[in-house]
Amino acid sequence: MASPQRRPDSSSLAEVLDRVLDKGIVIDIWARISVVGIELLTIEARVVVASVDTFLHYAEEIAKLEKATADGDLEDLEELEVEQRPESSPQSASQ
């Protein structure tokens, strides 16, 4: 018994608006118009971690970042929440 194929609907305006107006990367107007001497502040509210390997890699990157920040480099990292999701698969996808 073949069930009819189910395709997601891509035409719903409400679904598009929910995402386009509310999700995605947001860049403050001052970062969009300023050039000279501005310091950027990057906030990542959620980092998805797929495996312990990736987690260790993140930890390393974050350590580097924090050092860069302490040294007065551009990036600043205000808030970082690492979520471990062991159920995620396949793990290799994030390498």
Binding site: D9, E15, G24, D28, W30, I38, L40, V48
Partner: peptide, 21 residues
């Protein structure tokens, strides 16, 4: 049941970039 998409992964990037003044 309302099944929608595919979308660019809007809900899975949560990055805000500001400028320090």
């Amino acid at each position: 049941v309302q099944y929608t998409g595919p979308f660019a992964p809007y809900s899975f990037v949560d990055v805000k970039i500001g400028a320090q003044r």
